[in-house]
């Protein structure tokens, strides 16, 4: 089973997003690099709007991710509530 991953710039907004990823993906592997964080999860990763909003204490539009994204891998499925990366079909 291959990993999917996402890498984000390191800042206050993404600290909340990363916390949300860890909360919703128990197998997440966090890799801190200079000015960025790379998160690997076996096969499937979900980013939930509701969890991020809880972490941030404000409304969050999942498309805001675009401002902080560095790179990702896997097939994407995005709705208003969830952003999913996976190698499944």
């Amino acid at each position: 089973m291959s990993n999917v991953f996402i890498a984000l710039q390191k800042n206050e907004e993404t600290r909340c997003i990363i916390n949300a990823i860890v909360a919703d993906n128990p197998d997440a592997i966090i890799n801190e690099q200079p000015a960025m964080v790379k998160i690997d999860v076996p096969n499937r990763m979900v980013i939930r709007k509701s969890t991020v909003e809880e972490e941030m204490g404000r409304d969050f539009d999942l498309q805001e991710l675009h401002v902080y994204l560095i790179t990702l891998t896997g097939h994407i499925d995005e709705t208003d509530d969830e952003f999913v990366l996976s190698w499944t079909h």
Binding site: A35, H66, I70, T71, L72
Partner: peptide
């Protein structure tokens, strides 16, 4: 360079997709 690099890279995920 970090700033322009990250700013460009934030577009790359869309390009990769």
């Amino acid at each position: 360079a970090m700033a322009f690099g990250f700013s460009a890279q934030s577009d790359e995920s869309r390009h990769m997709t």
